[in-house]
Write a protein that binds this DNA or RNA. Sequence first.
DNA 1: GCCGTTTTCGGCCCGACTGTTTTCAGTCG
Length: 549
Amino acid sequence: MNNQETAEILEKIADLLQIKEDNSFKVRAYRNAVSSIYHLDEDLKTIYQQGRLDQIPGVGKAIQGKIVEILETGSCQYYNELKKEIPASLLEWLAIPGIAHKTARQIYKKLGISTLDELYQAAVAQTIQNLPGMGAKSEEKIIKGIEYLKGVKDKTTLGEALPVARDLYNYLQAFANIEKLSPVGSVRRGKSLVGDLDILVASRDEAAVRKYLRDYPWIKVIKLDESGHVTGILKTGLPFEVIIVEPQEYVQALFWTTGSKEHCRVLLDNVKPDLLRGVASEEELYKRFNMDYIPPELRENRGEVEAAQTSSLPARLELHHIKGDLHVHTDWSDGKNSLEEMAEAARALNYEYLAITDHSRSLTVSSGLSPEKLLLQGEQIDRLNRKWDDFRLLKGIEVDILKDGSLDLPDDVLAGLDIVVASIHSAFNLDKKAQTQRLVKAINNEHVDIIGHLTGRLLKRRPGYEFDLDKILEESARNHKILEINSHPDRLDVDEDIARRAKDMGIKIAINSDAHHKNELSIIQFGIITARRGWLEKEDIINTSTYLK
DNA sequence: GCCGTTTTCGGCCCGACTGTTTTCAGTCG
């Protein structure tokens, strides 16, 4: 069991306890421990072996015991007992907007159903609306929510898939009989949602590779184990495929298995079958097609072939181009680390600046900042900035766009800041016209620099709210507003398509982490992948430039 | 269940919004 899997079990315990209506502080204790584990820098096993579990914040004696049990046995007696009381299938319901623990409990108790399908049937049969506190609208919301979930059920976010891919990659790489290997398929192309995890392997001893692979500890089930490939499902639930080829076939296979299908098909139409024989690298392969090398992120048949033929592909955006982050939180609102800790983490990444953008006051749960607290924070930032001559903290805010489009802080307060990110955090259900007007109003505020997570989507949880995208892009271009690619792997908002349209309209993009913890600054890698897939170049990204304001 | 003490119990975020009500419970962030 790795950190993530351990945390997931503890999180399920918290959810089951909450459905059971157990002590809410006990529930929170489990959630705090989960959060700590997610943010650890090192392997839980190492910490355990060195007897340092009690040093993890929020982990006391009881939860320590459970962690040890999970690490040693892969399971937990307490968790199994809870599942006897409350069916674990109820946990799936919690992903449906409008259903949280109490509603899940009520439906389960009153209707005696526990699976997603049964819930869907019940909602369609209009039996949910008769329950206390529920009505026709809630029922409709449940139906819509389940239909959305079914559409993404078999997908995994890149954020979840990449660490799993790395682990399997490292396992395979350690095997002497494997000469070359690479992740392929949608993971290599960097899609925000992937269906499975594909790894290509070159070896002269296929049987040995297959045998070695069967011993991989994180395999749940092997479905196919035959010449050339092994498929199955990992313990995380992610389907995998390992494709094994002879070394001399590796490059061609790399091309084929990376895809996309449309990209390969367009290239291979009208070429002689032996064109690729003996090709030594992907660069050479594309040369044989008489075109520039096309990086994996662009292989979607969206014009990249024509661009490669005319040497007009976008110059690849690299991590080291990023000079700073323009959207992070600290413990002044709902972040976990102090100003100084965030600054030092940014300096460790060789950033030149970091904009501190805590929440504004209306987000009380995140202890949003009042004008007075913002002023105090500014003073502390000034003090800290005296320490460095090669780095600067910028004073900023993630100001809430209120329901009517006005901002949560007065103009004179915003005027005193270096960076103003404006985002929507409430009233997602406004109709299209009202939501559009709301955004237009915010975009027209002269103090706003960046619109944060524009569409509000959460991958695998909910689609974005309704608004007129054309209108918003026009207004953003006209007002010289920057749009954010929020790098959180559950958001990646704006997505690659909107980013590409924005670029074509001359709108600048900021790639931000929205980090709430110092270790989250690195998730900017996902934003960079999205930017590449949106054909963005260094010049399109505002935070690739040295920033002096 | 964790934490931090005026050390072994008492405290541990909360407000807006929604849909259901007719004064409020549950969800969400």
